[in-house]
Design a protein around this nucleic acid. Structure first.
Length: 553
RNA sequence: GGCCCCGUGGUCAAGCGGUUAAGACACCGCCCUUUCACGGCGGAGUCAUGGGUUCGAUUCCCGUCGGGGUCACCA
C-alpha cells in the first residue's frame, strides 16, 4: 500500500488535478498585465483598510490592462453573514470600484475562472489535497483540537516554539497502513501539509512593498483541509491564486509572516508563486499609541461611515491614493482636472509603515473635490445623499431650479467656494436660503457691536431697501450704492479711510454691510451677499428686512 | 517570549553619502477683501537614541529604545 491508496481512500471522488489545470488556462493578457484580487470574508462589512487594498489592486490592474477580481473567502462558516457578499459588492460600486470579474452578488458571479466563492470550490481543493497526499506531501492527522491544545501547553511549559512540527507532529510519521487502518476504524481526521522546511534555514523573500525580508523556513505542518472538508486560508490561497492566475497578491501586511509557508505551498504544489505586495494597515492614534482602525471602536473604520456622512467617494479615494503614493498630492496640484486614473500609480513606492488616519485631511480633499463640481453635480449628489439620510434636506431640494441657483452661488468661477466638504454639510450651508427654514427658526440676529443701536439698524435697513437697492444693478454698482448709503448715514465709505481716521466716522461700510447681511441671513458670515440677494429677489429681501425690524423690538 | 517589519516636524511624507532637509493638511502672522471661505506671501516646527564606517552621515553597519505585525481545524 502506498500514498496513492491513502489518497484514494480519503478522496475517492476527487478529480485529477490535470482536469482543473486544463479548465483554467493561462489568461490571454498583454505583457506585464497584473492580475490581482480583493478577497474578503463575506461579513458584509468593508473596512476602510479593505477598500484601500482594493483601490491599490485596481490601480495596478488598470494601469497594466490586467484584471481585478473579487473572490469571497468564506471557508470559515462561523463568520458568514447573510447577504454579506452583496454588501461588499455594493460598497465597491459606491466607490466606482467594480471588479472586472468575480462575485457580483451573494449568488451570482461573472468570469471564466470561477467559482469565485471558496465554499463552492470544495472539490477543487480536495483534488489538490488528494494530489499532495498521493505525493506524500500531505497526510491525515488524527489529533483532535484537544490534542493540539495539549501539545501547545506542553510546549509553553517547556518554553519552546509552539506548533505542530518535528517530534510534536505525531501523525506525520504514521505509516500509510496505520493511517488507512485508523480511517477504516472511523477515526476523525483532518489533512495536514507535510512541511519539508527546517526552522534553522533562512529563505529570502522580495516583497514589492516591504523589500527584502528574510525569514526562517516554515516547518509547521499546517492543516490544509479542516474537519468540515473546507480548506484553510493558506491552502485556498495557493490553489485559487494559481488557478485564477493571479500575478500579484496585494494584501494586508498581517500576512507577511505567512509568506514562508505560502511560498512552500506553491513550491510543493508545483505552482509558480505570485508576487507579493504587503500593505501596511491604516492606523489610528489611540492616546499616544498607534493601533489599527478598529471595527468595534472606530466608526470611520467602516466604509459605510463615509457614505452616511456624505463624504464623496472620490475624496476618499484621493485621500487613500495619497497615503498609498504620496507623490499623488503633487501630481494632483499639477493636474487639478485630470481623472485619478491618469495618475501613474507605483506599487513599489508605497510606504512601508502604517499611516495614521487623518480625517481633517480627508475633509479638506472633500472640500476641493466638491468645489470643482458644477451646481448640477452638487445638486444631484446632495439630493441622492439626502434621499437616504436627510429627509428634510431632500424636501427642500425638490425645487431643482431654485436649488441650482443656490448651489450656483460663488461656483464655477476660477476661485470657487470651498465650504462643503461632505454632503452632510449642505444643510447648514444653504438653509437660510429657504424661507420655510429661515422663518421657521427662532429668529436671532447677531448684530455686531459696531452698529448695535436698534433705531440705527432700522434706519439702515429701511433706507437701503427704499432708496438704494436696485435689482438690476451689476455687482460694482450694487456695492457703490451700499457705500453711498454708508456715507449718507455717517459711516466711512472705505474701510481704509475709516482705519486712517477712526474718530471721523461712526463705523465703516463693512459694518453697514454686516447689518444687511445679518438681517438677510441671520448670520455674520455668508458667501457673497450680492449673489445671495440676486437669488432671493427684492420681495424676499424686503420681507426679511421687515421681519428683522420686527425682531428688533 | 520567538520570529518579522517600521522609526524625517502635530499628521501624511520627499530625500537614498555632501540639500538653506521638498510639498500637502493643520497651526500662526500678513496681504487681498463689505463678512466668511478661496487665493497670495511669510513663519514656527523634524531626521528616536548610542556607537561605529567615512574627509563627511537623515541616508551605510551594529546595539538600545519606541511602535506595529505574527505565532488557530480565523481569515
Amino acid at each position: 500500500m502506498d500514498y496513492k491508496d491513502l489518497a484514494e481512500l480519503i478522496f475517492p471522488n476527487a478529480k485529477d488535478i490535470s482536469y482543473y489545470e486544463e479548465k483554467y488556462p493561462e489568461r490571454n493578457l498583454p505583457e506585464g498585465a497584473i492580475v490581482t484580487r480583493f478577497a474578503p470574508s463575506p461579513t458584509g462589512f468593508v473596512h476602510i483598510g479593505g477598500l484601500y487594498q482594493a483601490l491599490v489592486a485596481i490601480e495596478c490592474a488598470k494601469r497594466t490592462k490586467g484584471v481585478f477580481f473579487l473572490r469571497v473567502e468564506d471557508t470559515d462558516q462561523k463568520r458568514e453573514v447573510e447577504n454579506g457578499v452583496t454588501g461588499i459588492v455594493n460598497s465597491l460600486i459606491d466607490f466606482d470600484m467594480e471588479p472586472d470579474e468575480g462575485m457580483i452578488s451573494d449568488t451570482e458571479e461573472k468570469g471564466e475562472y470561477g467559482p469565485y466563492k471558496q465554499s463552492l470550490r470544495k472539490e477543487i481543493y480536495q483534488a489538490y489535497a488528494k494530489y499532495l497526499i498521493s505525493q506524500g506531501k500531505a497526510y491525515p492527522c488524527f489529533c483532535t483540537p484537544e490534542d493540539g491544545e495539549e501539545i501547545r501547553k506542553k510546549q509553553e511549559e517547556a518554553k519552546i516554539r509552539p506548533g505542530y512540527y518535528g517530534v510534536w507532529a505525531k501523525c506525520r510519521n504514521l505509516s500509510v497502513e496505520e493511517a488507512i487502518q485508523k480511517i477504516k476504524n472511523g477515526e476523525q481526521y483532518i489533512i495536514r501539509f507535510k512541511s519539508p522546511g527546517r526552522e534553522d534555514r533562512k529563505i529570502k523573500h522580495k516583497d514589492i512593498i516591504k523589500g527584502n525580508v528574510d525569514f526562517p523556513e516554515n516547518d509547521l505542518d499546517i492543516v490544509i483541509i479542516k474537519a468540515d472538508g473546507l480548506p484553510t486560508y493558506h491552502f485556498a490561497h495557493a490553489v485559487d491564486d494559481h488557478l485564477m492566475h493571479t500575478t500579484h497578491v496585494i494584501r494586508s501586511d498581517e500576512w507577511l509572516s505567512s509568506v514562508p509557508l505560502h511560498l512552500q505551498l506553491f513550491q510543493e504544489l508545483g505552482f509558480k508563486a505570485p508576487k507579493y505586495a504587503h500593505i501596511s494597515p491604516i492606523m489610528k492614534n489611540d492616546n499616544g499609541g498607534k493601533r489599527k482602525l478598529s471595527k468595534r471602536k472606530d466608526p470611520e473604520a467602516a466604509v459605510e461611515y463615509y457614505k452616511k456622512e456624505g463624504i464623496p467617494p472620490l475624496a476618499v479615494k484621493e485621500y487613500l491614493l495619497n497615503i498609498a503614493n504620496s507623490t499623488f498630492e503633487n501630481w494632483r496640484r499639477a493636474n487639478p482636472d485630470k481623472s485619478i486614473d491618469e495618475f501613474d500609480f507605483q506599487l513599489n513606492k508605497m510606504s512601508v509603515s502604517g499611516a495614521l488616519f487623518d480625517m481633517v485631511k480627508l475633509l479638506d480633499i472633500g472640500k476641493t473635490v466638491i468645489s470643482k463640481m458644477t451646481a448640477e453635480e452638487v445638486y444631484e449628489k446632495s439630493l441622492k445623499w439626502a434621499e437616504e439620510y436627510d429627509a428634510k434636506l431632500a424636501e427642500i431640494l425638490k425645487n431643482k431650479e431654485y436649488a441650482l441657483k443656490v448651489f450656483g452661488i460663488e461656483r464655477g468661477n476660477k476661485k470657487p467656494r470651498k465650504d462643503i466638504s461632505k454632503w452632510s454639510d449642505v444643510m447648514y450651508n444653504i438653509e437660510y436660503m429657504y424661507d420655510e427654514i429661515f422663518y421657521g427658526k427662532e429668529q436671532e440676529y447677531p448684530y455686531q457691536p459696531a452698529i448695535s443701536n436698534k433705531e440705527e439698524i432700522k434706519d439702515i435697513l429701511n433706507s437701503y431697501i427704499e432708496k438704494y437697492y436696485n435689482e438690476e444693478d451689476d455687482k460694482q454698482t450694487w456695492f457703490d450704492r451700499i457705500k453711498a448709503l454708508a456715507v449718507e448715514k455717517g459711516y466711512a465709505g472705505e474701510v481704509k479711510e475709516f482705519k486712517a481716521n477712526p474718530g471721523k466716522y461712526k463705523a465703516h461700510v463693512g459694518d453697514v454691510s454686516t447689518v444687511l447681511r445679518v438681517a438677510l441671513t441671520s448670520r455674520t458670515n455668508t458667501p457673497d451677499m450680492y449673489e445671495i440677494m440676486k437669488v432671493l429677489g427684492k420681495d424676499r429681501i424686503q420681507k426679511r428686512f421687515e421681519k428683522a425690524i420686527e425682531c428688533l423690538k
